[in-house]
């Protein structure tokens, strides 16, 4: 299979509101792909459909060659998902949260010690293994959420606004970890409203009110708008052009 994620006119409506409008894209293995846009752009809804936790209204999507509607459970075993809001157990420790997810994903018991150790070391969280999750800083919570999403060695990782509200230092650290994963062959799908995070992706889809305005590398998007001073200005130009032609 050539692409690890494929969307073909993927659509999701909530009553009259079209949250994701005929999204078509392909993501090859090993890419860091960004879904870029503000609240209401359709990023989270797209992620929910790709991670098979929400059904499309129409169109289709395949992850690792599996159809999101028919083979959702099979997809879930091979992907990881870090949601925007902290969704781990605050009253469990770092170690206990990892153990919980290892149970959920049925990670073989003999593989757990090595994996847990490796994941904690990579995010410099080994000294915090016995700390309750609710007592961690925002940056550390996200790193724990990442570790829990990786315990079953997924092939594709979906991250929904992973560094919103986190300080710049933790964000840089987080991306260092993410790039390490990509170096080992993982594909990342990241959503963010921040342009300075968009430029950390290999390719990005600029989204506005459910539609994809452009999909290309950040450099190419900038090159196509030489009169615009930066990526955000190019994005604004695209939004304006779309609105004036509709």
């Amino acid at each position: 299979m050539e692409f690890v994620v494929e969307c073909d006119r993927l659509t999701r409506a909530f009553g009259r509101r079209v949250a994701v409008d005929a999204l078509t894209l392909q993501i090859p293995r090993g890419e860091v792909f960004g879904l870029i846009g503000p609240d209401g752009a359709g990023k989270t809804t797209t992620m929910r459909m790709l991670t098979a936790i929400m059904a499309p209204s129409s169109g289709s999507a395949r992850v690792l060659g599996l159809d999101v509607t028919r083979d959702g459970e099979a997809i879930k075993e091979r992907i990881g998902y870090v949601s925007q809001r902290f969704s781990l157990y605050g009253d469990l420790t770092v170690g206990e949260n990892l153990e919980f997810f290892a149970d959920l994903f049925q990670v073989p018991p003999d593989e757990r010690p090595e994996r847990t150790e490796r994941l904690l070391a990579a995010s410099r969280m080994t000294p915090f293994i016995r700390r309750q999750a609710r007592d961690l800083s925002g940056g550390m919570k996200q790193k724990l959420a990442l570790a829990c999403a990786l315990i079953h060695t997924p092939e594709v990782l979906f991250l929904d606004e992973p560094t919103t509200g986190v300080d710049p230092v933790s964000r840089r650290d987080f991306w260092r970890i993410l790039y390490g994963l990509v170096g080992d062959g993982m594909t990342l799908v990241v959503s963010t409203p921040f342009m300075d995070e968009a430029v950390r992706c290999h390719r990005i889809a600029l989204m506005h009110l459910g539609r994809m305005l452009m999909c290309d590398t950040p450099d190419a998007i900038r090159a196509r708008h030489p009169d615009e001073v930066d990526l955000e200005a190019a994005f604004i130009r695209l939004i304006r052009d779309t609105e004036s032609s509709s």
Binding site: G37, P38, D39, G40, A41, P193, H208, E232, F235, I236, I239, R240
Partner: peptide
């Protein structure tokens, strides 16, 4: 927070 780029500007 979460507002589109045009509105932010």
């Amino acid at each position: 927070s979460g507002v589109d780029p045009i509105s932010r500007r």
